[in-house]
Design a protein around this nucleic acid. Structure first.
Lengths: 226, 226
DNA sequence: GTTATATTTGAAAAAATTATGAAAACTGCC
DNA sequence: GGCAGTTTTCATAATTTTTTCAAATATAAC
């Protein structure tokens, strides 16, 4: 089930959210301010973050902005009624929804499930913001994260570059020359078989989804989603 | 700029939304109930629909569900405070957001712009691959994929090249010399029968569509789509 | 029908391409 | 300088494709 991070300085609020969220089957972690939230996010990945706007140490907006630099986790902001200015900024920096305090826990849970549904690509399996999803595979271009069935796949820099380029050009026949010049640079003068080796590594990393990388004999490769 | 459809039975509400929306530069059309909304949507396409939940004739949910059958226009639902049940269903059937009445027009506009942004971002700038189609046969040049009745045909590199060249020059009589020099290169010095063999393989791959490859005795071949 | 010429076809050899494993070279970092 | 992780090289294996070639078949002209 999905993992949530609840960020709020008030114990009461965290407690309530945790209670409802766990009832819904989510796993919950907590942070008391933006600073702590960032730290936790660096170490772990969540499916969704619920974050208060007003917090000591580091407010929700700044934290949101910071986290977005390396994660694309959906964020629901909590703001006190009347903070119209806040709302605007919440949207501007890409939080996925916001809920006005005092909120009904039930409503919040609805939002959570809606945002998660959206994020998990229950819609058409095309790319969303900057994330590509296909079945259990998801590629977050901005965060440089590839996950398979929710589990993060560690990839080396070259693997990322090669894979990202292929995914961005999914469905197209990419020649070896094109791939090499795009990923290694037009002045690459190395061995002929280097690309093959990286395709091999990439396929290994992709596990079952290596099926998406098709060899086009005599031409190159193609990433496809059947 | 974007076109909005505002669906609400109260004139006051439509008036307010129209005023703010037009101020933001949107074009606005109105409908007074779900039935009318569906009719209008059948005829025209909008970028976003703002729809009240409680309406005479046909409520917002039913309308939403109906419209979604033939349109994927984003929908923002308006619901009266406390209609918790409504909210749930609004999300379930795929409205993109909802706003609680009484709402602040400014907030509504924020939502509108957020949803529109999301919707536009989601469009994957699908490259229009150049594809040739004839009855059940289709040739996707950029993806290097040939399908017959939806099923993919595996072809070897030479088959592809030969076939692609013939399809691109469909309807033309192609001499053996021309075909060989185009596909093999002008410096091909191989056997006379090599081309024949590849035509044979190609015809085999094409199944019923091998009828499209006509032998021009004494000359060469022609791909034709009668 | 016969004949001369051209095309089709099947099978097997030859050639080409890609996959892979292992080792070497390189990188950034203590 | 030594490590751990990456990237590249390279030889070998595995696989696929291309070509050859001879026999079979078809076609058109006579």
């Amino acid at each position: 089930m999905s993992r949530l991070l609840v960020v709020d300085d008030e114990f009461r609020i965290r407690q309530i959210i945790r209670k409802y969220a766990e009832f819904e089957g989510y796993t919950v972690e907590e942070a008391v301010d933006g600073m702590q939230a960032i730290e936790i996010c660096r170490k772990e990945e969540f499916d969704l973050i619920i974050m208060d706007v007003m917090m000591p140490e580091l407010d929700g907006f700044s934290a949101c902005r910071e986290i977005r630099k390396f994660r694309s986790t959906p964020i629901i902001m909590l703001s006190a009624r009347g903070e119209e200015y806040d709302k605007i900024h919440g949207f501007e920096l890409g939080s996925d929804d916001y809920v006005v305090k005092p909120f009904s826990p039930k409503e919040l849970m609805m939002r959570v499930s809606a945002v998660l549904k959206r994020a998990n690509g229950n819609q058409n399996p095309e790319q969303k913001n900057d994330v590509f999803t296909y079945e259990g595979l998801s590629v977050d271009f901005s965060a440089r994260i590839v996950t398979i069935d929710g589990k993060r796949i560690g990839m080396t820099p070259k693997e990322y570059e090669l894979f990202f380029y292929m995914v961005k050009n999914k469905g197209l026949a990419l020649t070896r020359e094109k791939l090499i010049s795009e990923v290694w640079g037009y002045d690459f003068f190395g061995d002929e078989r280097t690309l093959d080796t990286h395709i091999k590594l990439l396929r290994k990393s992709l596990g079952e989804y290596s099926k998406c990388i098709v060899t086009l004999r005599g031409v190159g490769y193609r990433f496809e989603t059947v």
